[in-house]
């Protein structure tokens, strides 16, 4: 049975070897100037080093250019795309069509993965971006299992599904943390504090804590729980989903490595010895639970949820 790719997010160049040991097949990296909500910040020289390390370990490297770009960055996209082609990145992850046009003009052989986080919601749209040049679509996190399987059944492109970690609920261009400090009159704290880590919004009514952070792309608000479906991979493996992603944004390198090991085991069992996977999957889930930081629970996201409108 075809093994889906295990795609993970290193926090630094030195983390890549560990992830290779843990069983990752591919990594996604980048810098916030072009990419959204990354686990680590990779300068150009880091990207070059990461590609070298990953390729030596037999892993693919995808570089995030999935920000929403304003005019001021459009002219520099070509230079970054040319750089990525030169260092041998295996694909560029994009959402903004400006990147698609730039890649066509600058590096037409570069593979493209279409990833807008929230808008890849039907198979037609996935195939549309496929006809425009994408090799892969990264599905929205708000889909349930049935919708994912139906998309895969109709897809003419590779399908990537996030199986673990935080998901983004909201992105604003506005400086919401900085503005709140300014409103409070804490002008001195703004520049020092607004980029700090560990901030969250508390929702009293639901008793949820939503991680929030600001960067060059604006303000991001993340899901209160970590998605985890390590015990529910069977149907997607059978359907031939091409890539399973573990998103490690706002988690530690050690956490990402340990979770990667568990998913490596789950995918191997699921494809090689399905009965054993069924027997052991509860243990794998318990092992993930044991890794969770005290303030982060796990849940199954939208995989088994119905949304109305």
């Amino acid at each position: 049975m075809k093994k889906p790719e295990l795609l993970v997010t290193p926090t630094s160049v030195s983390h890549i070897d560990e992830l290779a040991e843990a069983g990752a097949d591919a990594i996604i990296i980048g810098e916030q100037r072009y990419g959204l909500r990354l686990a680590g910040e990779f300068s150009r020289s880091d990207v070059a080093a990461a590609v070298e390390t990953a390729h030596r370990r037999g892993m693919n490297v995808y570089v995030a250019m999935n920000a929403l770009f304003h005019n001021d960055k459009v002219d520099e996209l070509a230079d970054y795309v040319a750089f990525l082609a030169e260092v041998g990145a295996d694909a560029i992850v994009f959402g903004d069509p400006a990147v698609l046009l730039t890649v066509r003009e600058t590096a037409p052989h570069m593979k493209l993965h279409w990833s807008t986080e929230t808008t890849a919601t039907n198979w037609y749209a996935c195939n549309y971006w496929g006809r425009k040049g994408a090799k892969r679509a990264v599905l929205a996190r708000e889909l349930n299992m049935d919708a994912i399987l139906e998309i895969k059944a109709h897809a003419e492109v590779e399908i990537e599904v996030q199986v673990h970690g935080m998901t983004c609920m909201y992105q604003s261009k506005r400086s919401l943390i900085g503005n709140y400090f300014a409103y409070q009159g804490k002008v001195m704290e703004i520049e020092r504090k607004k980029y700090e880590k560990g901030m969250f919004l508390y929702d009293k009514e639901r008793d949820y804590k939503y991680p929030i952070f600001e960067d060059e792309n604006g303000t991001h608000i993340m899901s209160p729980n970590d998605l985890c479906i390590i015990d529910e991979l069977g149907d997607m493996v059978e359907a031939g989903i091409d890539s399973f992603k573990i998103d490690g944004v706002l988690h530690t390198a050690d956490y990402i490595t340990e979770v990667t090991k568990l998913y490596r085991r789950a995918i191997d069992l699921c494809t090689e010895d399905r009965e054993r996977y069924e027997r052991e999957k509860e243990e794998l889930l318990a092992a993930v639970e044991a890794l969770q930081p005290p303030h982060r629970r796990i849940d199954t996201g939208f995989f088994f949820k119905e949304t109305i409108y």
């Binding site: 929403l68 807008t116 986080e117 929230t118 808008t119 996190r141 708000e142 983004c168 609920m169 909201y170 992105q171 604003s172 261009k173 506005r174 919401l176 604006g218 608000i221 899901s223 209160p224 939208f302 949304t307």
Partner: peptide, 12 residues
């Protein structure tokens, strides 16, 4: 206040 289309607070 979010980029339109890039907000799923309501879903969550």
């Amino acid at each position: 206040s979010a980029y339109s289309g890039r907000c799923v607070l309501s879903n969550h």
